[in-house]
């Protein structure tokens, strides 16, 4: 026991002196970034592992990680992923991919991961202006909403616009919606080219609002009048992602309808993104 403590003291002391030098230096980051730049192709994704190193990655390569990529719904559409990792970490976004290339740059490892990319047939966020938006009142009267500049404004105060949202302390591009109680906000995309999968992700924006309110937002998803699934967002649900199977509808153009309701609207700012795609 005594020898173990003495040994522990020695190891901990040595570690305290050595560990700072094992951290990636700026030179390591520059070398890793140069490697990524040399092989980068349009449509590639660049990620840091562990995720907390992302600000340093963006300092080096932020011009290749624009806002639509940084706030992505998920990584399914990316077939090539550049990962700058340290301490043996692997990014969640690379799950299921195969390492096609790997190189060491000091304390950093650059890996290029490859996998079949999902082919997006319809991006509901990018095509938000094609949505027909309305509010169904408690009396079941459907009232169309009006486009006002950068957003769509509805009866009773509900509104919708694309925004960069903070959901579960992560930044996501999504359609920001302020739902109202006892009414249903309806988004209808009349002509949607469907794939085998309809991926829908949602959550509640703002750490402050999530703390303030406790209401739950419910979203029903229907294709050509038939419900294919539901998804909920609450203060603790995070960025919830569901994949609805639309294999039977793949290749067809259909009418996709999102119906959004809330039990308690106080401090609820809902955000969602969705893609029809072929995985």
């Amino acid at each position: 026991m005594a020898a173990a403590i003495v040994l522990l003291a020695l190891v901990e002391t040595v570690n305290a002196f050595v560990a700072p030098f094992r951290a990636p230096s700026e030179k390591d980051w520059r070398a890793a970034a140069a490697k990524v730049r040399a092989g980068f192709r349009p449509g590639d994704l660049i990620v840091a592992a562990p995720a907390w190193a992302d600000p340093i990655l963006r300092q080096q390569l932020g011009d290749l990680v624009p806002l639509p990529v940084a706030g992505r719904m998920d990584a399914a559409r990316f077939g090539r992923i550049w990962e700058i990792s340290q301490r043996g970490a692997q990014a969640v976004d690379t799950a299921g991919a195969k390492a096609a290339e790997s190189s060491r740059h000091g304390a950093l490892t650059v890996r290029r991961w490859e996998r079949p990319a999902a082919a997006v047939t319809f991006d509901f966020l990018a095509e938000w202006h094609r949505a027909e938006v309305s509010v169904v009142t408690p009396e079941q009267v459907e009232v169309p909403c009006a486009a006002t500049g950068d957003r769509i404004q509805c009866l009773g105060g509900a509104s919708l616009h694309p925004d960069l949202l903070e959901i579960d302390t992560t930044l996501r591009n999504g359609l920001a919606i302020e739902p109202v109680e006892r009414s249903t906000l309806v988004l209808t995309y009349p002509e949607t080219l469907l794939g085998r999968d309809l991926a829908v992700a949602c959550g509640l924006h703002s750490v402050w609002l999530r703390k303030l309110g406790d209401g739950k937002v419910h979203m029903r998803v229907a294709v050509d009048g038939q419900e294919i699934g539901t998804i909920d967002a609450s203060s603790s649900s995070g960025w919830a992602l569901k994949n609805f199977d639309t294999t039977a509808l793949a290749g067809r153009t259909g009418k996709v309808r999102f119906e959004i309701t809330v039990d308690k609207a106080n401090a609820r700012r809902f955000g969602f993104a969705a893609e029809a795609r072929n995985p």
Binding site: A19, W52, A53, I56, Q59, L61, G62, D63, L67
Partner: peptide, 15 residues
Amino acid sequence: RTTQPSIVYTHEGVP
């Protein structure tokens, strides 16, 4: 209009 910080303060590589 950018995701690219001009500077990052780190301690042992942690921002």
